[in-house]
Write a protein that binds this DNA or RNA. Structure first.
Length: 478
RNA sequence: GCCUCCAUAGCUCAGUUGGUUAGAGCGGCGGACUGUUAAUCCGUAGGUCCAAGGUUCAAGUCCUUGUGGAGGCGCCA
């Protein structure tokens, strides 16, 4: 077991003058004297200084990018300029060699597409090290936020027997032999012979189960993987992604929006305070990347300023109806610059419209509420006008919809009517309807796309670069 | 699922109206140097130009199909 102190702690310099032991992977080896060592605890490398007269040439040749080594020596003030402290090595041990003719990572810039092909090694780069430390911090901050507010963390099932979650195409789960599927007398698949004796799928949302929890614990959240078998080929979609789904009882749509806004600000602020080095690196990376782009496609704010702006400003809240008004009067709509020109109330908003509202009109995160009921899910509470539902979507610059939520319909009769209208099989959903039979109460919740949050905070353009091993159509490598 | 673009050395790319033996930087390898910061300097090796088929006297370059990748749209988180 490795009880060594991390490079992150060593770089604070509090152990100056002490003899320490440190393990890590070589990033670069310069001048036969200076090893840049990284152990993943921080973006920064620790400089190891060795006296090459103490070692055989054949040994020094084995110190290459990627080599795993252990070092003992005194932590001293650095004589060089790039770092405050360094280790004067007294003992150097090689754990695992890394053949420089074959090791794919070089001390240079690699394209994200190339690194995606070697996703098993990309953690060792500065960029992906920073991304996944930020991802870890966001994940921790989410649990911390809810824990401080007396939420119960609830584990909803990954395999679901409910096919009415209504959030998209599902992956089937079965132990039947696909080459030899048993049929019943009617010539249909005989699910009685399947593992669960019925059709099952991977979950597309834990919301319905979270509602069950909220009606007992008052405040719950789920945070786990979800699956969509949609043939989506974009930089914002994955077949397997992580979703945060809080559900709160005795709460309406306004409480729901407050909760979502508080959560987003809290976790972004946590990263600003705890991942400064990672964010500074990612900001520089973005600035370099944007130098390749034409002026009008560059972002208006550097990454850290953008995050501070989101934390420091109230999200713009408006209804769908108000948004349609703004869009109808907007220049791109009048001049027919939109691919889909808005004609009248009731139209579904395309991403170009959402982008206009967020990036051009308000220039800050926007919460849209009260959508037409026809374009939203059956479980959303119908407003008094009987035309709109208490839905809310939070739109972020660059990535669009990051949160989708609603107040839930708690009235039994109205809910059953909506299920019938939208062809949701009410007879199979009695467990869900029971909530409205026994002690029904106002409640609300939302789903936060975790990878989209990581995208926003790291500034990464492609969602496949913010999850360790992305799953998308045609790809389940690693 | 739809639209657009791309595929040349380990990586990032250049390659003229189709014309002799396909280039550079980085990385690798050999050497020098030794307080360097993606070290520097000298030397050197490295290619099935994504695949198959076609047009042509001649194809990295043009055409067709396939495969892989990127961006955009739809579905959404």
């Amino acid at each position: 077991m490795n009880n060594n102190i991390s490079i992150k702690k060593l770089l604070t310099g509090t152990q100056k003058g002490e003899n320490v032991k440190v393990d890590g992977w070589v990033r670069t080896f310069r001048n036969n004297q200076f090893i840049a060592l990284n152990d993943g605890s921080t973006i920064n490398n620790l400089q190891i200084v060795i006296d090459y007269n103490d070692y055989e040439d054949s040994f020094l040749k084995r110190i290459n990018p990627g080599t795993a080594i252990g070092v003992e020596g005194e932590l001293v003030e650095s004589l060089g300029k790039g770092q405050s402290v360094e280790i004067k090595a007294s003992k150097l041990e090689i754990y695992g060699d890394s053949d420089p003719e074959k090791y794919p990572l070089q001390p240079k810039r690699h394209s994200l597409e190339f690194l995606r092909e070697i996703a098993h090694l990309r953690f060792r780069t500065n960029t992906f090290g920073a991304i996944f430390r930020v991802r870890n911090s966001l994940s921790f901050a989410i649990h911390k936020f809810f824990n401080e507010r007396d939420f119960v963390y609830m584990h909803t099932p990954i395999i679901t027997g409910s096919d009415a979650e209504g959030a998209g195409e599902m992956f089937k789960v079965t132990t039947l032999e696909l080459e030899n599927i048993p049929l019943n007398d009617n010539g249909n698949v005989d699910y009685k012979q399947d593992f669960f004796e019925k059709p099952t799928n991977l979950t597309v949302s834990g919301q319905l189960e979270a509602e069950l929890g909220a009606m007992a614990f008052s405040k719950v959240y789920t945070f786990g993987p979800t699956f969509r078998a949609e043939n989506s080929n974009t930089s914002r979609h994955l077949a397997e992604f992580w979703m945060v789904e809080p559900e709160i009882a005795f709460a309406d749509i306004n409480d729901d929006m407050d909760l979502a806004e508080d959560l987003l600000k809290y976790v972004i602020n946590y990263v600003l305070e705890n991942n400064t080095g990672d964010l500074k690196f990612l900001e520089q990376r973005l600035i370099q990347e944007e130098k390749q782009k034409p002026q009008n496609e560059r972002s208006e704010m550097p990454l850290i300023e953008k995050l501070n702006f989101v934390v420091g400003n109230k999200f713009e809240r408006l209804t769908y109806t108000e948004a349609i008004d703004i869009l109808l009067r907007s220049k791109p709509n009048k001049k027919k610059k939109f691919k889909f020109v808005i004609e009248k109330w009731g139209a579904d908003l395309q991403s170009e419209h959402e982008r206009y509202l967020v990036e051009k009109h308000f220039k800050k995160p926007v919460i849209l509420t009260d959508y037409p009921k026809d374009i939203k899910a059956f479980y959303m509470k119908v407003n008094q006008d009987n035309e709109t539902v208490r839905a809310m979507d939070i739109l972020f610059p660059g990535i669009g919809e990051i949160v989708g939520g609603s107040q839930r319909e708690e009235r039994y009769d109205v809910l059953v009517d909506r299920m019938n209208e939208m062809n949701v099989p009410a007879e199979e959903m009695q467990w869900y309807l029971d909530l409205r039979r026994y002690g029904s109460a106002e409640h609300a919740g939302f789903g936060l796309g975790f990878e989209r949050l990581v995208q926003f905070v790291t500034g990464m353009g492609n969602i496949r670069d913010v999850i360790p091993f992305p799953r998308y159509p045609g790809n389940a490598r690693f």
